[in-house]
Design a protein around this nucleic acid. Sequence first.
RNA 1: GGGCACAUAACUCAGUGGUAGAGUGCUGUCUUCACACGGCAGAAGUCGCAGGUUCAAAUCCUGCUGUGCCCACCA
Length: 927
Amino acid sequence: MEIPKAYEPKEVEGRWYPFWEQQGFFSPENNPDPKAKVFSMVIPPPNVTGYLHMGHALNHTLQDVLARWRRMAGDRVLWLPGTDHAGIATQMVVERQLAAEGIKRQDLGREKFVERIWEWKEHSGGTIQKQMRIVGDSVDWARERFTMDEGLSNAVKEVFVRLYDEGLIYRGERMINWSPGLQTAISDLEVEMKPVKGKLYHIAYPIGRAITAPVEGLAEAYEAANSEEKKSGYLKTDAGEFIVVATTRPETMLGDTAIAMNPEDASSKGRYAAVVGKKPVLPLVGREISFIEDEVVEKDFGTGFVKVTPAHDPSDFAMGKRHSLEFIQVIGKDAKMTDAVPEKYRGLDRNEARKAVVADLEALGLMLKVEDYAHNVGHCQRSGSVVEPLISMQWFMRMKELAEPAIAAVRDGRTKFVPESTAKIYFNWMENIQDWCVSRQLWWGHRIPAWHTPEGDIVVARDEAEARGRLKVRGLDPNASLTEESDVLDTWFSSQLWPFSTLGWPEETEDLKKFYPTDVLITAFDIIFFWVARMMMMGLKFMGDVPFRTVYINALVLDPQGQKMSKTKGNVIDPLDVFDKYGTDAARFALTAASTAGMTLALQESKLEAARNFANKIWNATRFVLMNCDDVLEDQQPVGWETELSQPELADLWILSRLNRVALDVHSALGEYRFHEAADALYRFFWNDFCDWYIELSKPFVTAKESSSIPGPQSLAVKRRIIYVLERSLRLLHPIMPYITEELWQRLPHKGETICAADFVTHNSAQLDGRAEREMTLVIEIITRLRNIRASFSIAPSLPLTAEIAATDEHSRAVIEAMQDHIKRLARIESLYIVDRLGAARGTARAMVSGAEIAVPLQGLVDFDKERARLEKEIGKLSNELAGLEKRLGNDDFIARAAAEIVATSRERAAELNDQITKLKATIESL
RNA sequence: GGGCACAUAACUCAGUGGUAGAGUGCUGUCUUCACACGGCAGAAGUCGCAGGUUCAAAUCCUGCUGUGCCCACCA
């Protein structure tokens, strides 16, 4: 046989995916059973510009494990793939490309630019789809969707119009986050707070008069007014009265329209009672402003006076609304000072303006103090530029009343979060939800379905014809020349419809009826707000049901040092490199096995190596079978367990029981999303039970050298059983390790075209055999003890030994007798005597197991001191355990209150320990 | 400032009321005819600290210490 000794993933992967895809195995229609239960998932659509990162590798692996498992278990499985148009990200990619050609998007114009993006998508997109095929994602490519597809775009319009008609979408002038880098509004979620080392500027504002000439001595007066005991922002000097405010953004002072203080400070007994009713004058501008009182002002921060710039700060904006202040926009969308400021600052960039304002205030002696100050500043997540809070006309979605049913659906369990703790993240955000700015001043995306009339009226409609109809209804001119709204929607607006827009909504399609709601959504926790929460709201609103029954939040993949991967740190691991180095199946196994309940997952090399070794083990176990079982393999008929020729012996009943147990464990572990438990159970079963014990026990009947003395029929029966267990093991492993299992399964006798469509092994409780498992444990322990004695005394494996075994009961004795040939062979014992009582201890090594005592005569080989030390250590261990048990058993409360079963087991164990210790002591005596 | 996690063997992590497990690493051994990406045997943990509940706590409760993450308008 020319089967390589080591598994070479590259030889195997790559040839199976095309086969699976072409044969349509991943289509739900491939399931011939009309009554099959439906299992559906939609993939979190990656950006169309994207490539696979480690998070996807994990996310896709887990989804694929579920999809393959449910498919094999008989479900009609739909796993729907697709990509997201990713508004800003995609526009930026193409803009960069244009920049390389020296072109700006404005040079092309909107229409040409959008065309260009579509071209880019056709030619350069699709990377992620290729990569998904490498990972093995068993998605139904025939149902692939893109958020800008016609159908999905219709769904977007439909939703927008309906929400607008209900008043859940509105247009208004509000404070928004403006990204000067991207020249668009962005949502709160797209603002990233980053710590910045800045300055805190203390600025004096005069009361009652403008300052035009430098003022002396204010800084000193300010310092004097602020001692350990007393802090004051109110100064009265020869130059007049001043108040002091602290700010990190001095340039915004040009737009101040009030000074705020806490009501307590303003009260008659308050520290700033003196200023009440007076008017501060804005330095550099000379505008008179007023004092206001507001609870949000913290008395203990800074001086207790806050400058209020309603047009450039969210909290000031709120104060401005509360106190009906004037909103003066001093910074424009280009991040430059507007015409609303004194001439000398106009047109300056906001940072230059800051320098100029600081310098001018210093010159006037009004800059009293500048201290270093670390604070958080909002940055645009995409462009990195500092976000400018601005008042702007935008489209908003009213969230509160949409959120309520979505909160309720998780509270009452219609949708379940796994791990459960992630639901708290969801609640926390949903219960404090703010309106969502959905309009973007971009070109790539779904255009807001609205039209403007020359008179400034706005009409929202599915298309222009409907818009004209609506104008008529409103008594406006239906023949007016209409201008289409130029804004597009936030990319997440279409993503939030994904679970039903991909299935054909708003049409009432068969798919929609069949596959909605989906069973489970697997995603990363950083998009719970961006995506999961919004899908919940939209699903309930438009489908009347939750979009998925379960949300499984997969872990965040960290680098091997447990650090978050990031481009700036340079520790980003490309999953394709990992797949290439260790093999796709191994990488998938490692990711599955590492998917515990934790929120992070450090991708350790040792885990990948262990998984690669496991794949190699599977390969070689099968190699062993292929090399030794030609006579069974020839006819390629599926192998049954039953054989008329030979009664199963203990090892057979045992492995059959273990196989059934692992099938049961894997099934229930996957059913509860305990991925690592499924992987662990399979690893242990296949390696420890099947390879280490069952194959080893079977070798005399199987290998050419040894089986020659075994009657043919018996040998065939054993081979059939090995193949039976192996073939089923491959099926159990397939969801996690699709390639190697398909490759090997195809070489074994099997039923059907592909392992993908084979039955997932379900357990047969009649074959769960606790008795066989206990009996086999005795055999394994005896062999292990015998090997241990050999190793402890450094006796060469080649040296044959004699052993005596005395069973402590009839049942054990029967087991040992039945298995004595195996014990002899695996422990390399030449003569094994099963006796009633062990002989004299002199010259022997002894061991105890539950059910038997063991003696190995070692005349001349035993170092008595060493044996004594070994036995004493054993006694020590047992005594420790016994002491604990006796303490417990001596406690009347334990006897009275603990479960009867616990008490009984404790008693039995204590008796056994007592017996063993006595015997070991006697053995030491007789040495 | 608010909230949520997590602290178990050298490392990475399982384990959730009956005195601890895995992988890697480590020690010894075996060129045994599936596999050295292997076999066999072994060493290694007062389960972060302090209290409490319980017959019994790694496991439940409280506090503390440390670490990480999320949210938030201290200018």
